[in-house]
């Protein structure tokens, strides 16, 4: 009985008696979830446009952040380094299209997936070879990102909001809005959606697949750069982050591989879910649950919605 009380009643009593802690936990969950959502967004962009499940997205985040910090450490002003990093991500998109995607056109999806594994390992080795494997500190001040915290006295306690997190939320919202306008209003955006619908039909009306692929990989690279800055500001920049980047996978599963709103909603659900679970239920089973909780949520969801909450239903034919 005691254990049942601890699992089913006690956490809710705690939530009721200390609402300020609950709000604080929810806020942290939302911020963490937003970062997962941003990584997932990069996945979705590439998956929609080319059908490639890009395992390397997490590493692209770290690689972009490392390039930015590395260029700054080499003596460049912050904004020059930022511009150069964008150029590097464009170059990466070109290289990936030339070297990896183009020779593998028309191969089964699983082969392309494996190829992005190869890309992941290549980028890890390449990044560490050039910038070194030790953790680095993100140049938040030089990029005029705010720091410090706002404390709000409410609900019988103090709620602390990092200014950086608020800035991150604003930037992420602006970026998602910009991307959706880009997709729906511009010529290239329409071409992208055409490619996502059907490669063959898009080719037949004269859309260049190669160009589209470079553009999506570049867009995913930009998303990766923004994510990398936000993430690097919260912790150090190092390749140890790649395991955390795997967290974007359950987010994708929740949201479905093809849905941008799905990626965002999924990210927020996972972020809030794992923070709440760790804070209220984690101590019961020894803590550290956030390493697997997201995956188990995703697994449970998958049993009921095998294509995610917002994903397209796949009809299989013989």
């Amino acid at each position: 009985m005691d254990i049942l009380y601890k699992i089913f009643i006690d956490p809710f009593v705690q939530m009721g008696t200390a609402p300020d802690l609950l709000v604080q936990t929810l806020w942290e969950g939302l911020v963490g979830g937003m970062l997962y959502a941003l990584i997932a967004l990069g996945f979705v962009l590439i998956f929609k446009a080319s059908g490639v499940f890009n395992f390397a997205q997490g590493i692209m985040v770290v690689f972009a952040a490392l390039t930015l910090v590395g260029l700054h450490a080499a003596g460049m002003p912050a904004f020059v380094a930022l511009a150069l990093t964008i150029v590097v991500m464009l170059g990466l998109a070109y290289a990936v299209e030339r070297v990896v995607l183009k020779p593998l056109v028309n191969q089964p999806d699983i082969i392309l997936f494996m190829a992005t594994f190869g890309l992941t390992y290549f980028l890890i080795g390449f990044g560490e070879l050039i910038f070194g494997g030790d953790p680095k500190i993100m140049i938040t001040e030089e990029l005029y990102l705010p720091k410090g915290a706002i404390t709000i006295k409410a609900l019988g306690g103090i709620i602390g909001l990092q200014k950086l997190d608020i800035a991150a939320a604003i930037i992420a919202t602006v970026m998602v809005a910009a991307l959706s306008i880009f997709f729906s209003k511009t010529r290239i955006g329409r071409a992208l959606r055409a490619v996502a619908d059907s490669h063959k039909a898009a080719l037949s009306v004269g859309i260049s697949l190669e160009q589209i692929w470079v553009i999506v990989w570049f867009a995913a690279g930009l998303v990766a750069l923004v994510t990398g800055i936000m993430w690097g500001a919260r912790s150090d920049v190092s390749f140890a982050l790649d395991v955390i980047a795997l967290k974007a996978l359950p987010v994708l599963i929740l949201g479905g591989f093809t849905s941008v709103p799905g990626a965002i909603v999924g990210g927020l659900i996972i972020g809030v879910g794992e923070k709440l679970a760790e804070f209220y239920w984690g101590p019961l089973i020894g803590g550290g649950t956030d390493s697997w909780f997201a995956f188990v949520i995703a697994l449970v969801f998958l049993l009921y919605w095998p294509h995610g909450l917002f994903g397209e239903k796949i009809i299989e034919r013989i």
């Binding site: 990896v100 494996m114 190869g118 890309l119 992941t120 390992y121 290549f122 080795g125 390449f126 494997g133």
Partner: peptide
């Protein structure tokens, strides 16, 4: 680092 790079490149 070179091993990582080589393994990745070999896979591709």
């Amino acid at each position: 680092h070179i091993t990582f790079m080589t393994v990745g490149a070999l896979i591709v």
